[in-house]
Amino acid sequence: MNDHHGQFEPKVIAYCCTYCAYTAGDLAGSMRLQYAPNVRVIKVPCSGSVSALLLLKAFQDGADAVYVAGCAIGDCHFLRGNLQALKTVAYAKALLEEIGLEPQRLEFFHIPASAGPLFAQRADEMTQRAKQLGPNPLRRAMRVVGGGKLAFPPDDHPPLPPASFGVLKRHDPQEPTP
């Protein structure tokens, strides 16, 4: 989580909808705009497809800030996906507060496909916010691999069991599922 100068470099996850925000990211690249390299962009079919659990798990896995970027109001390819995402993010913020994490670590942004500069601006903004808030406190309790890398290697994750009734699920890497 620290670069070689010892300064805190946050890890920021951006869930970007493929129609607007992700396209805006492409545009930002074509325009040769500079933005914080801390941001890891994850393309999703629609911002409305992002669930509260997905957002929570990003923090559980050590993200310092997370944001969901969707289309402008009225421009959603799926009509109401971005409105749903707004609700989901608000709900997940409340959950973060319950857990004791700063809800400011999570945000929703509208980024139209034509707004390359806005994409860069939001990326810088969330990175700045994460720097101000400091490292995700959950990371301290985890095995820190170092650098800007994942807090623990992805292979250590036990494979998620298929969702079905009557099946016991355990998410503890230390203990095998009975």
Partner: peptide, 22 residues
């Protein structure tokens, strides 16, 4: 997930398993 994260933040050991029945 919330319970695990909360426990983690508090530095507590808490094993939380999940199962859903019909």
């Amino acid at each position: 997930a919330e319970l695990r994260m909360h426990a983690q933040k508090q530095g507590k050991t808490l094993l939380v398993d999940e199962v859903t029945v019909t």
